[in-house]
Protein backbone atom coordinates (compact mmCIF):
# COMPACT_ATOMS: atom_id res chain seq x y z
CA UNK A 1 0.00 0.00 0.00
CA UNK A 2 1.32 3.43 -0.94
CA UNK A 3 1.25 6.03 1.83
CA UNK A 4 3.16 9.22 2.61
CA UNK A 5 3.52 11.35 5.73
CA UNK A 6 4.83 14.88 5.15
CA UNK A 7 6.01 13.80 1.69
CA UNK A 8 7.99 10.77 2.90
CA UNK A 9 6.94 7.24 1.92
CA UNK A 10 5.84 5.12 4.83
CA UNK A 11 3.89 1.95 5.60
CA UNK A 12 0.18 1.61 6.20
CA UNK A 13 0.29 1.44 9.99
CA UNK A 14 2.46 4.53 10.34
CA UNK A 15 0.22 6.50 7.98
CA UNK A 16 -2.93 5.42 9.84
CA UNK A 17 -1.36 6.38 13.18
CA UNK A 18 -0.28 9.75 11.78
CA UNK A 19 -3.79 10.33 10.46
CA UNK A 20 -5.31 9.43 13.83
CA UNK A 21 -2.90 11.75 15.66
CA UNK A 22 -3.72 14.61 13.29
CA UNK A 23 -7.51 14.18 13.60
CA UNK A 24 -7.43 13.51 17.38
CA UNK A 25 -5.65 16.75 18.15
CA UNK A 26 -8.05 18.88 16.08
CA UNK A 27 -10.89 20.85 17.64
CA UNK A 28 -12.92 21.49 14.50
CA UNK A 29 -12.01 18.96 11.82
CA UNK A 30 -13.71 19.01 8.42
CA UNK A 31 -14.39 15.95 6.28
CA UNK A 32 -14.63 17.01 2.67
CA UNK A 33 -14.78 15.58 -0.84
CA UNK A 34 -16.71 12.38 -0.16
CA UNK A 35 -16.38 11.52 -3.82
CA UNK A 36 -16.22 7.81 -3.08
CA UNK A 37 -18.17 4.57 -2.81
CA UNK A 38 -21.05 4.28 -0.34
CA UNK A 39 -19.09 2.19 2.21
CA UNK A 40 -16.42 4.88 2.45
CA UNK A 41 -18.99 7.67 2.75
CA UNK A 42 -20.71 5.70 5.54
CA UNK A 43 -17.42 5.23 7.35
CA UNK A 44 -16.66 8.94 7.00
CA UNK A 45 -20.00 9.97 8.53
CA UNK A 46 -19.45 7.45 11.33
CA UNK A 47 -15.98 8.79 12.16
CA UNK A 48 -17.18 12.40 11.83
CA UNK A 49 -19.89 11.66 14.40
CA UNK A 50 -17.36 10.15 16.78
CA UNK A 51 -14.86 13.01 16.69
CA UNK A 52 -17.26 15.94 16.19
CA UNK A 53 -16.24 16.81 12.64
CA UNK A 54 -18.34 18.58 10.04
CA UNK A 55 -18.96 17.11 6.61
CA UNK A 56 -19.15 18.60 3.12
CA UNK A 57 -19.05 17.15 -0.38
CA UNK A 58 -17.06 18.09 -3.46
CA UNK A 59 -20.19 19.26 -5.28
CA UNK A 60 -21.82 20.81 -2.21
CA UNK A 61 -22.82 24.13 -3.83
CA UNK A 62 -24.61 22.47 -6.75
CA UNK A 63 -26.27 19.91 -4.47
CA UNK A 64 -27.63 22.63 -2.20
CA UNK A 65 -28.80 24.69 -5.18
CA UNK A 66 -31.09 21.77 -6.01
CA UNK A 67 -32.02 21.02 -2.40
CA UNK A 68 -32.86 24.66 -1.68
CA UNK A 69 -35.52 24.66 -4.39
CA UNK A 70 -36.70 21.14 -3.53
CA UNK A 71 -37.27 22.03 0.11
CA UNK A 72 -39.35 25.09 -0.79
CA UNK A 73 -41.44 24.20 -3.81
CA UNK A 74 -40.83 20.50 -4.43
CA UNK A 75 -39.65 19.12 -7.75
CA UNK A 76 -41.02 17.24 -10.73
CA UNK A 77 -38.00 15.23 -11.80
CA UNK A 78 -37.50 12.39 -14.25
CA UNK A 79 -34.47 10.09 -14.45
CA UNK A 80 -32.39 10.08 -17.67
CA UNK A 81 -33.72 6.70 -18.84
CA UNK A 82 -37.30 8.04 -18.73
CA UNK A 83 -36.38 11.17 -20.68
CA UNK A 84 -34.61 9.10 -23.36
CA UNK A 85 -37.58 6.73 -23.60
CA UNK A 86 -40.47 9.21 -23.55
CA UNK A 87 -39.55 12.86 -24.26
CA UNK A 88 -40.60 14.47 -27.54
CA UNK A 89 -39.33 17.91 -26.54
CA UNK A 90 -36.13 18.57 -24.60
CA UNK A 91 -35.01 22.01 -23.46
CA UNK A 92 -31.32 22.48 -22.67
CA UNK A 93 -30.92 25.32 -20.16
CA UNK A 94 -27.56 27.07 -20.37
CA UNK A 95 -24.22 25.81 -21.60
CA UNK A 96 -23.48 22.84 -19.32
CA UNK A 97 -26.24 20.44 -20.54
CA UNK A 98 -24.84 20.66 -24.10
CA UNK A 99 -21.67 18.95 -22.84
CA UNK A 100 -23.55 16.03 -21.30
CA UNK A 101 -23.25 12.66 -23.10
CA UNK A 102 -26.98 12.29 -22.47
CA UNK A 103 -27.67 14.96 -25.10
CA UNK A 104 -25.88 12.91 -27.78
CA UNK A 105 -28.13 9.98 -26.87
CA UNK A 106 -31.20 12.18 -27.03
CA UNK A 107 -30.22 13.50 -30.47
CA UNK A 108 -29.58 9.99 -31.79
CA UNK A 109 -32.83 8.39 -30.62
CA UNK A 110 -36.60 8.88 -30.65
CA UNK A 111 -39.11 8.34 -27.87
CA UNK A 112 -40.17 4.69 -27.77
CA UNK A 113 -42.55 4.57 -24.81
CA UNK A 114 -45.65 6.39 -23.62
CA UNK A 115 -47.79 8.99 -25.34
CA UNK A 116 -45.02 10.33 -27.55
CA UNK A 117 -43.77 6.91 -28.77
CA UNK A 118 -42.56 7.14 -32.37
CA UNK A 119 -42.70 10.93 -32.54
CA UNK A 120 -39.78 13.08 -33.62
CA UNK A 121 -37.79 14.52 -30.73
CA UNK A 122 -37.23 18.25 -30.70
CA UNK A 123 -34.14 19.59 -28.94
CA UNK A 124 -34.47 23.23 -27.89
CA UNK A 125 -32.05 25.43 -26.05
CA UNK A 126 -32.23 28.43 -23.78
CA UNK A 127 -29.04 30.42 -24.25
CA UNK A 128 -27.20 31.56 -21.16
CA UNK A 129 -27.34 35.25 -22.04
CA UNK A 130 -26.41 37.63 -19.26
CA UNK A 131 -28.08 35.64 -16.51
CA UNK A 132 -29.55 32.19 -16.88
CA UNK A 133 -31.96 32.52 -13.94
CA UNK A 134 -33.37 35.67 -15.56
CA UNK A 135 -33.78 33.86 -18.91
CA UNK A 136 -35.78 31.10 -17.20
CA UNK A 137 -38.05 33.70 -15.57
CA UNK A 138 -38.51 35.37 -18.96
CA UNK A 139 -39.49 32.04 -20.52
CA UNK A 140 -41.89 31.26 -17.68
CA UNK A 141 -43.62 34.65 -18.11
CA UNK A 142 -44.19 33.76 -21.81
CA UNK A 143 -45.36 30.22 -20.97
CA UNK A 144 -47.91 31.67 -18.54
CA UNK A 145 -49.14 34.08 -21.21
CA UNK A 146 -48.14 37.13 -19.18
CA UNK A 147 -45.70 38.30 -21.84
CA UNK A 148 -45.71 37.89 -25.63
CA UNK A 149 -42.97 40.34 -26.56
CA UNK A 150 -40.07 37.97 -27.31
CA UNK A 151 -40.57 35.77 -30.40
CA UNK A 152 -37.86 33.27 -29.45
CA UNK A 153 -39.29 32.79 -25.95
CA UNK A 154 -42.80 32.44 -27.38
CA UNK A 155 -41.59 29.71 -29.75
CA UNK A 156 -39.84 27.79 -26.96
CA UNK A 157 -42.84 28.15 -24.65
CA UNK A 158 -45.18 26.90 -27.41
CA UNK A 159 -42.92 23.93 -28.16
CA UNK A 160 -42.96 22.85 -24.51
CA UNK A 161 -46.67 23.38 -23.96
CA UNK A 162 -47.57 21.50 -27.17
CA UNK A 163 -45.23 18.58 -26.41
CA UNK A 164 -46.70 15.32 -25.11
CA UNK A 165 -43.74 14.77 -22.77
CA UNK A 166 -41.34 17.63 -22.25
CA UNK A 167 -38.05 17.55 -20.36
CA UNK A 168 -35.94 20.46 -19.13
CA UNK A 169 -32.24 19.66 -18.59
CA UNK A 170 -30.12 21.89 -16.37
CA UNK A 171 -26.92 21.94 -14.37
CA UNK A 172 -27.69 22.97 -10.78
CA UNK A 173 -24.30 24.61 -10.28
CA UNK A 174 -24.78 26.74 -13.39
CA UNK A 175 -28.41 27.70 -12.75
CA UNK A 176 -28.37 28.35 -8.98
CA UNK A 177 -31.15 27.89 -6.48
CA UNK A 178 -33.23 30.94 -7.55
CA UNK A 179 -33.19 29.78 -11.16
CA UNK A 180 -33.99 26.17 -10.21
CA UNK A 181 -37.01 27.24 -8.19
CA UNK A 182 -38.18 29.28 -11.19
CA UNK A 183 -37.55 26.30 -13.50
CA UNK A 184 -39.53 23.96 -11.25
CA UNK A 185 -42.32 26.55 -11.27
CA UNK A 186 -42.25 26.52 -15.10
CA UNK A 187 -42.40 22.72 -15.15
CA UNK A 188 -45.30 22.71 -12.69
CA UNK A 189 -47.14 25.36 -14.77
CA UNK A 190 -46.71 23.19 -17.90
CA UNK A 191 -48.08 20.16 -16.05
CA UNK A 192 -51.44 21.92 -15.77
CA UNK A 193 -52.03 20.96 -19.41
CA UNK A 194 -49.40 18.43 -20.50
CA UNK A 195 -46.48 16.46 -19.11
CA UNK A 196 -43.12 17.98 -18.39
CA UNK A 197 -40.26 17.08 -16.08
CA UNK A 198 -36.98 18.58 -14.95
CA UNK A 199 -33.72 16.66 -15.08
CA UNK A 200 -30.82 17.90 -12.96
CA UNK A 201 -27.53 16.82 -14.52
CA UNK A 202 -24.86 15.97 -11.99
CA UNK A 203 -21.18 16.72 -12.50
CA UNK A 204 -20.35 13.01 -12.41
CA UNK A 205 -19.35 13.00 -8.74
CA UNK A 206 -20.86 10.95 -5.94
CA UNK A 207 -22.79 13.78 -4.27
CA UNK A 208 -26.08 12.01 -4.75
CA UNK A 209 -24.74 8.84 -3.14
CA UNK A 210 -23.53 10.97 -0.22
CA UNK A 211 -26.96 12.56 -0.05
CA UNK A 212 -28.60 9.14 0.40
CA UNK A 213 -26.07 8.12 3.07
CA UNK A 214 -26.45 11.44 4.90
CA UNK A 215 -30.23 11.11 4.87
CA UNK A 216 -30.32 7.59 6.28
CA UNK A 217 -27.50 8.29 8.75
CA UNK A 218 -28.35 11.74 10.08
CA UNK A 219 -31.86 12.50 8.81
CA UNK A 220 -30.35 15.57 7.11
CA UNK A 221 -28.64 16.37 3.82
CA UNK A 222 -24.89 16.31 3.30
CA UNK A 223 -23.54 19.46 5.00
CA UNK A 224 -23.84 18.54 8.65
CA UNK A 225 -21.67 19.14 11.67
CA UNK A 226 -21.32 16.92 14.73
CA UNK A 227 -19.50 19.47 16.91
CA UNK A 228 -22.37 19.46 19.40
CA UNK A 229 -22.85 15.69 19.17
CA UNK A 230 -26.19 15.80 17.36
CA UNK A 231 -26.06 16.27 13.59
CA UNK A 232 -26.85 19.88 12.69
CA UNK A 233 -27.42 20.86 9.08
CA UNK A 234 -26.25 24.33 8.07
CA UNK A 235 -25.20 24.71 4.43
CA UNK A 236 -23.52 28.06 5.09
CA UNK A 237 -21.65 27.19 8.27
CA UNK A 238 -20.43 23.77 7.16
CA UNK A 239 -19.27 24.80 3.69
CA UNK A 240 -15.74 23.30 3.84
CA UNK A 241 -14.18 25.98 1.60
CA UNK A 242 -15.67 28.75 3.74
CA UNK A 243 -14.47 27.09 6.96
CA UNK A 244 -10.96 26.69 5.58
CA UNK A 245 -10.86 30.29 4.34
CA UNK A 246 -12.22 31.70 7.62
CA UNK A 247 -9.70 29.71 9.64
CA UNK A 248 -12.44 27.85 11.51
CA UNK A 249 -11.29 24.37 10.52
CA UNK A 250 -8.03 23.20 12.05
CA UNK A 251 -7.72 19.82 10.29
CA UNK A 252 -9.33 17.97 7.42
CA UNK A 253 -9.95 14.56 5.99
CA UNK A 254 -10.15 14.65 2.19
CA UNK A 255 -11.93 11.57 0.85
CA UNK A 256 -11.72 11.17 -2.93
CA UNK A 257 -11.26 7.59 -4.05
CA UNK A 258 -12.55 8.77 -7.46
CA UNK A 259 -10.76 11.50 -9.45
CA UNK A 260 -11.87 14.86 -8.02
CA UNK A 261 -10.86 18.50 -8.45
CA UNK A 262 -8.87 19.41 -5.35
CA UNK A 263 -9.45 22.48 -3.21
CA UNK A 264 -6.57 24.90 -2.67
CA UNK A 265 -6.63 24.44 1.11
CA UNK A 266 -5.39 20.81 0.95
CA UNK A 267 -1.81 21.96 1.32
CA UNK A 268 -2.39 24.74 3.84
CA UNK A 269 -4.67 22.94 6.31
CA UNK A 270 -3.31 19.83 8.11
CA UNK A 271 -5.05 17.20 6.01
CA UNK A 272 -5.38 13.45 5.75
CA UNK A 273 -6.04 12.64 2.10
CA UNK A 274 -7.48 9.30 1.04
CA UNK A 275 -7.17 9.33 -2.72
CA UNK A 276 -7.36 6.94 -5.64
CA UNK A 277 -5.22 6.76 -8.76
CA UNK A 278 -4.22 10.45 -8.69
CA UNK A 279 -2.43 10.14 -5.32
CA UNK A 280 0.84 12.06 -4.97
CA UNK A 281 3.23 12.37 -1.99
CA UNK A 282 2.94 16.15 -1.61
CA UNK A 283 -0.84 16.34 -1.94
CA UNK A 284 -1.42 16.74 1.80
CA UNK A 285 0.26 16.14 5.16
CA UNK A 286 -0.84 12.49 5.27
CA UNK A 287 -1.67 10.76 1.98
CA UNK A 288 -2.98 7.21 1.73
CA UNK A 289 -3.60 5.60 -1.66
CA UNK A 290 -6.91 3.73 -1.72
CA UNK A 291 -8.58 1.63 -4.39
CA UNK A 292 -10.72 3.39 -7.00
CA UNK A 293 -14.24 1.92 -6.79
CA UNK A 294 -15.46 0.15 -9.92
CA UNK A 295 -11.91 -0.19 -11.21
CA UNK A 296 -9.54 -1.40 -8.49
CA UNK A 297 -12.01 -2.33 -5.74
CA UNK A 298 -15.72 -3.12 -5.73
CA UNK A 299 -18.15 -0.55 -4.41
CA UNK A 300 -21.66 0.87 -4.51
CA UNK A 301 -21.82 4.02 -6.63
CA UNK A 302 -24.50 6.39 -7.88
CA UNK A 303 -25.87 5.12 -11.19
CA UNK A 304 -26.59 8.26 -13.21
CA UNK A 305 -28.80 6.60 -15.83
CA UNK A 306 -31.04 4.79 -13.37
CA UNK A 307 -30.87 7.49 -10.68
CA UNK A 308 -30.12 4.94 -7.96
CA UNK A 309 -27.31 3.16 -6.14
CA UNK A 310 -25.77 0.07 -7.71
CA UNK A 311 -22.75 -2.16 -7.12
CA UNK A 312 -19.78 -1.88 -9.46
CA UNK A 313 -17.38 -4.82 -9.47
CA UNK A 314 -13.65 -4.11 -9.86
CA UNK A 315 -12.24 -4.33 -13.39
CA UNK A 316 -9.09 -5.98 -12.10
CA UNK A 317 -8.23 -7.61 -8.80
CA UNK A 318 -5.53 -5.85 -6.80
CA UNK A 319 -4.24 -5.47 -3.28
CA UNK A 320 -5.18 -1.83 -2.80
CA UNK A 321 -7.25 -1.22 0.36
CA UNK A 322 -10.78 0.14 0.15
CA UNK A 323 -11.19 3.65 1.59
CA UNK A 324 -13.78 2.35 4.09
CA UNK A 325 -11.22 -0.04 5.59
CA UNK A 326 -8.66 2.73 6.01
CA UNK A 327 -11.23 5.00 7.69
CA UNK A 328 -12.23 2.15 10.02
CA UNK A 329 -8.55 1.67 10.96
CA UNK A 330 -8.16 5.42 11.56
CA UNK A 331 -11.32 5.33 13.72
CA UNK A 332 -9.90 2.46 15.78
CA UNK A 333 -6.60 4.32 16.21
CA UNK A 334 -8.46 7.51 17.20
CA UNK A 335 -10.46 5.54 19.80
CA UNK A 336 -7.21 4.03 21.05
CA UNK A 337 -5.82 7.51 21.67
CA UNK A 338 -8.79 8.35 23.91
CA UNK A 339 -9.69 11.31 21.74
CA UNK A 340 -13.34 10.32 21.52
CA UNK A 341 -13.92 10.41 25.30
CA UNK A 342 -11.61 13.36 25.77
CA UNK A 343 -14.25 16.01 25.10
CA UNK A 344 -14.80 18.75 27.61
CA UNK A 345 -18.57 18.21 27.39
CA UNK A 346 -18.37 14.39 27.54
Amino acid sequence: MAAWVKGGATDADAAVQAAAALLSSAHAPVFAGLNAEVAAIRAAYDLAGRIGASVDTAGGDATYADLGALARVGAMQAPPAEVVGRADAVLLVGVAPGRSPLVERLRATKPVRGRAAGAERRILSLPAGSDLAVAIAHLRAHARGHLTSDAGMMETARALSSALYGAVLYDPGELGTLGIEMLQGLVMDLNEATRCFALSLSDGGQDRAALQVAAWTTGQATRVGFGRRVPEQDPWRFDADRQAEAGEADAALWLASLPTARPAWLKTLPTVALVGSDAAPDLAEVVIRVGEPGREVGGVLWNEGRAGLSYRAPEQAGDLPAAADIIARIAAAVAGRGAVANRKDA
Partner: peptide, 9 residues
Protein backbone atom coordinates in the same frame (compact mmCIF):
# COMPACT_ATOMS: atom_id res chain seq x y z
CA UNK B 1 -23.86 28.57 29.50
CA UNK B 2 -22.64 26.45 26.59
CA UNK B 3 -22.00 28.65 23.56
CA UNK B 4 -19.37 26.59 21.72
CA UNK B 5 -20.15 24.72 18.53
CA UNK B 6 -17.23 22.29 18.31
CA UNK B 7 -15.79 19.54 20.46
CA UNK B 8 -14.02 22.16 22.59
CA UNK B 9 -17.32 22.62 24.47
Amino acid sequence: LVVGTTRRG
